[in-house]
Amino acid sequence: MSSLLSVRNMSINFDTPRGSLEAVRGVDIEIPAGTSVGVVGESGSGKTVMCRAAMGLLQGSNVNRSGTVVFDGHELTAMSKEEVRNLFGSGMAMIFQDPMTALNPVRRIGSQLSEGLRVRLGMSKADALARSKELLELVRIPNAAAVLKSFPYQLSGGMRQRVMIAIAIACNPKLLFADEPTTALDVTVQAQILQLLRELREDLKMSMVLVTHDLGVVAGNTDYVAVMYAGEVVEYAPTKKLFADMRMPYTEALLESIPKVDHKSGTRLAMIAGRLPDPTDRGAGCSFAPRCKYAQEKCRNEHPELKKDLDGHLYRCWFPIGEAK
C-alpha cells in the first residue's frame, strides 16, 4: 500500500525561557492512502504539534524542527511556504477541536465556506455559494439556505463543527486532519459527527488523521492507531490488533481509565497516577516509567528503542505486555 503522508524522524523543539522544550521526538508515521489513522495520547503528548508540523503550520523563530514530511510525492519540508499553502484545501485540510473559536465570528457562514472554493477552484461568487449550499446539505445541516446567511454565534456547537467539516472538504482534500473534532461536544452530537466523518471518508475516498485522547473514539473510526506519549510514538498497530493484543503498558492504562457503561456502579476507576514528565527535562529512561506499574530498574535508566514485531506492530517498551518478564 502506498503512503499518502509519511513523516520521517520528525523532531520539534521550542526555545523557551526554561530551556529547550522537546514537543516531538523522532516520530515516524505513515498514513497509507485511503485509511484512517488515530493519534492518541494525553494533553501535552505532542499530538497537535505533530499534526501542525506535518501540515507546515508551525511558524516562529523559536521553533526548531528536523526530519522530513512527504505528502503525495511532494517533500513538504523542502518546499517554500507558498508552495505548501497551495496544497491546502485540495491536498490537505484540517478541522479543529473548538468549533466555537475556529470560525470567524464577524463573517457569515456562506462567505467563510465559499472562500476556499473561489480561491482554490476559481469559482464565481454565485457558483461558490450554490456549491456551499450543497456542501452544507452534504454535512446534513437542515435548512442550508438560512445557515449560509447566519453568523457562527447563531449556530450550536455541533452545527458549527459541521460547518467546519464542510469548509474542510470543500475542495475534495486527499487527507483530512481532524484534531479532537468531538472533544468539545455532547456524546450524542459526538456520535453524529463521527458517523458523518465515516460516511464522508467513504464517499470522497479521503484519508484521515484522527487526533483524540479517547481510545473509545479511535476504536470504531480508524484502521491504524499511533499512541503518543511525551512527544514519542510509543505504540503503532492496526486498530483491531492494538485492542486485541496491546504491548505498551501506557496504552493499557489509557484503556482502563475510560469509564464504561458496563462497569458495576460504585467501583473505583483505574487511573494513571501522576502526569506527563516535564517537556524541558525528559530524563534518561523510559518517559512513562514514573507512572508505570510494571516499571523496573532498567526502565528508569535506559531509554527503550522502538521495537517491531514480525507483523509490523511497533512498541517502545523494555518489558512489553504478554512477554515473560
Binding site: 437542515p142 450550536s156 455541533g158 452545527m159 456524546v187 450524542t188 452530537v189 459526538q190 456520535a191 453524529q192 463521527l194 458517523q195 479517547d214 481510545l215 473509545g216 473514539v217 479511535v218 476504536a219 470504531g220 486498530t239 483491531k240 485492542f243 486485541a244 484503556l255 475510560i258 464504561k260 457503561v261
Partner: peptide, 24 residues
C-alpha cells in the same frame, strides 16, 4: 437508550449498528 447508544465503545470488534439519535 439513545444517550447510552452514543457512548463510544473502546473495542473495535463490538461496534454498534443501532440507529443514532438524529438532530438536536
Amino acid at each position: 437508550k439513545a444517550l447510552l447508544d452514543s457512548v463510544p465503545i473502546a473495542d473495535p470488534t463490538r461496534q454498534r449498528k443501532t440507529e443514532l439519535l438524529q438532530g438536536e
